[in-house]
Design a protein around this nucleic acid. Structure first.
Lengths: 253, 253
DNA sequence: AAACAGTGTTTCATATAATGAAACGTTTTA
DNA sequence: TAAAACGTTTCATTATATGAAACACTGTTT
């Protein structure tokens, strides 16, 4: 946590630490509960929240609870990195979803995790739902395994050394050597499968997206419940996803 | 500026003031230039930027310049308010754009300005391009005029009293009474036109989106260059946009 | 090659501004 | 009706943000 002890502005750190408490699962916070949650003094928390509200970073609900505010929406839309990727992935993802009728995700690797940049949800009732902008473990998702597989050798080695391979389901790869072999296989076949490795009942298939220097910069996945997702369709899926990947590749540098 | 003199955390205010310097037009900032721009001390600016970087709010470029970071992308995607609107506007906007082949915008009123929540760009070369999450003056845009027209009486009165009607082009409505009459007309006909009132050569048509209590909560617009945008097509445009508005209305509460 | 200008970075004494315990109003719950 | 729960304000204290100046590094100019 306190790695470098650089001389940071503590108030600003606290402010963003407070903001981190706002998640999909808990979108509303009162002063007191947030102070307790983060271990800050009530007064401090109160003033920070107040400050953030006056900046439009937070806004108050009817219940006097705080919510993330539109300033963050504004700033979030200005983030330059990956913006192009998001923009040009939209239509191809939709085309894939239309053909396969399952949820399609688009992500990159950031800080050794999968960062979801875009998605198109399945039109069907039973579907996967991931939060855009959220992170997920790389080693147990199809997208993540694709991105890991095509990582430069040294970066992959670093990852494999430092990552903690916790089991999410009984199928999760928790052994470094097994993972290494899996990644080798993915490099050859140019797609990755996630056979309920992250979540029981959830199967995904992912393929790489290349830039024009031949580097893998992103990945597309299709996810569905194991009840629908039949392995005999894989060849079909692959060709549809490949088409989408190429459509994205045509637009990026 | 210093309206209430509430006791705010100044560091946090400064941090966000720095972030506000990052715009579409200027996405990169160095320490020194940003310090000068905001009138802060170089050391202070340096430390704030450093802090923000360590939080992932900013990230460094190759050139040692700072860019908005992925933390903001993450937070921006969690902003609950208007999220539903964004989600359900996507497909209808695309359908409109496909039929009309012009850029389609979707926005709400926030702090008396138009906040753009979503868009689908025209497939044609010559097109309007607005930044999602950005704000625009209400009184000289079609979306804005629709949203003003259906504002509760008191709120509209407040707006008309306080707004400064600056001319953007020769066509901008700069007279309060003229604007009031225009809004009256919009209420009746249920659509607004922007005849080069914001920008020369740019014409827009906008229509309201209602919630199920009959209140106007958002607006859809179609924008195109005056060279293409013919008034004889208006009836056609109206019916296409109306269809889109209804598709959105079907999904929101 | 030396001087210079333009950067980011670090230092350190100083004063400002963030801090927290406690008290104060409200509203909600028992 | 008491008590608990919550947001808000106060005020003395001390922690910490501050800024001028020096430093280090880079590329440009003379």
């Amino acid at each position: 946590m306190n790695e470098d002890v650089k001389d940071l502005n503590l108030s600003v750190v606290k402010a963003f630490t407070l903001l981190d408490a706002f998640t999909m699962d808990k979108q509303e916070w009162g002063v007191r509960e947030l102070a307790i949650k983060k271990g800050y003094n009530k007064s401090t928390t109160y003033r920070l929240l107040n400050t953030l509200e006056s900046l439009g970073v937070l806004q108050k609900n009817d219940n006097d609870k705080y919510l993330l505010g539109l300033k963050l929406f504004e700033l979030g839309n200005l983030v330059a990195i990956h913006k192009t990727l998001r923009k040009y992935s939209r239509t191809p993802l939709e085309n894939i979803a239309r053909e396969i009728k399952e949820t399609v995700h688009f992500g990159v690797l950031d800080k050794n995790q999968v960062l979801y940049l875009n998605k198109t949800e399945s039109p069907q009732g039973l579907k996967v739902s991931t939060q855009i902008g959220s992170y997920q473990k790389a080693y147990c998702t199809a997208i993540g395994k694709v991105l890991l597989a095509f990582l430069p050798e040294q970066k992959l080695a670093d990852y494999l050394q430092t990552v903690s391979l916790d089991a999410c389901t009984a199928n999760t790869i928790t052994n470094r050597e097994t993972l290494q072999k899996e990644l080798q296989k993915i490099r050859v076949q140019e797609y990755a499968l996630d056979m309920e490795e992250l979540e029981l009942g959830l199967i995904c298939i992912a393929m790489p997206v290349y830039n024009n220097r031949g580097e893998v910069i992103a990945s597309i996945s299709v996810s569905g419940p194991s009840s629908r997702f039949k392995l005999e369709n894989i060849e079909n899926y692959i060709s549809i996803i490949k088409k989408g990947a190429q459509a994205i590749e045509a637009n990026i540098y």
